[in-house]
């Protein structure tokens, strides 16, 4: 299988729970996320390595990465 067919992860963001602290954006090692107003958003899904740091350090149960 080539890179083109590489399965992308699914990043679930709950805007009702995100308080906009930007911890996930700041600590993402591959710059996947960005702040849009007061809520996090995915900027570059392909860069995601599924390391889960965003989920682990999110204080608000607002973001999870699924394979």
């Amino acid at each position: 299988m080539g890179d083109a067919a590489k399965k992308l992860p699914r990043i679930e963001i709950n805007p009702k729970l995100c308080k906009g602290c930007s911890i996930c954006v700041d600590f993402c090692p591959t710059n996947v996320l960005e702040m849009r107003g007061t809520c996090v958003a995915v900027k570059d899904l392909a860069a995601c390595t599924r390391c889960q740091l965003c989920d682990l350090r999110c204080p608000d149960f607002a973001i999870q990465v699924f394979d």
Partner: peptide, 14 residues
């Protein structure tokens, strides 16, 4: 019960 009462960026949720 969520969102919890803690402020944005508060470490308690982590």
């Amino acid at each position: 019960k969520l969102p919890h009462i803690w402020c944005p960026g508060c470490g308690h949720g982590i």
